[in-house]
Every structure is written in structure tokens, then in C-alpha cells.
Amino acid sequence: MTRSALLGIAVCTLALAGCVAPAPDDAAYESKAASTAQAALSEARTALVAAHTSADDRLLGTYLEPVLVDAEQALGSVQTTFDSVQPPPTSAADDLRAALDPLLQSAASDVTELRIAARRERTDALRSTSSHLSGVADRLERFAQEHGG
């Protein structure tokens, strides 16, 4: 094998190593869970800021919907990515997943509710769902902090 081919393989390996984050042990899985919670928090809070601003009549309706759709899609992607990681065979890892998964589902569900309320121009539903999502976001934040995010 030529030197340039070896170099190419090395570069590809490094690049793939940057893209894929396997979870071989509890510590790595916990780190993955924390970064997942952080990413979900970012999307949930984006939806919250948009919804609050809209409820205060400070956000254009055309702007609210794409922001919520993006947050909804990103949350779905965050959840799918986390669920696709094989957890290590320990009770600690199972506990982590059991704690985080419902939060991710709840956040995704709330943002979907917000998107539906935005399309129907229902400010009351925006406010009530925001209130619930706010609690979920706080719990995501605590989770991320407790697990090193």
C-alpha cells in the first residue's frame, strides 16, 4: 500500500472517529446522555422563547412556525440518535436511559403541541403547553448538570 493511501485511510479514520461516538462504558454513556440532554434543552428553550415572544405579540406568525418545526425535527433527531446508542450492560446505564428517555419524549411531544397551537393561532394553548415544557426543560438542565454536561 502506498504512503498516500495509508495517509488517506488515517484521515478517513480520524474523520469517522469525530463523527461516531460509541459508548463502550458507563462514563462514555453518561457523557453521551449529558450532551443529549444539553442538545434537547437547547431546542426546548428555543421553542419556549419563540412561544413566549409570540404570546406577547412580539413575534411574526410566519417566523414562529419554522422555528418550532426546526426545534421539533431537531428534538426527534436528538432522541433517535440517543436511542440508537447501545448502552453498556449495567444497571447504571439502564437508569440513565430510563431517566432521560421520558424527558426527551415529553419535550418532543410538547414542541409538537406548540407547533399545532401555532398553526391554529391558539395563544391559550401556546401558554399552557409552554408552562409544561418549561418544567421539562428545567429537568433536562438539571440532568445535564448532574451528569457533567
Binding site: Q38, A39, L41, S42, R45, T46, L48, V49, A50, T53, Y63, P66, V67, D70, A74, E141, A144
Partner: peptide
């Protein structure tokens, strides 16, 4: 808020 920018919509918020 812990928001990381990933969309243009977030830039304008």
C-alpha cells in the same frame, strides 16, 4: 437559556 444556534430562526429571536 442554554440555546446553541443551529438555525437562522434562532439568530433572529
Amino acid at each position: 437559556q442554554g440555546i446553541e444556534v443551529a438555525t437562522l430562526g434562532q439568530v433572529g429571536l
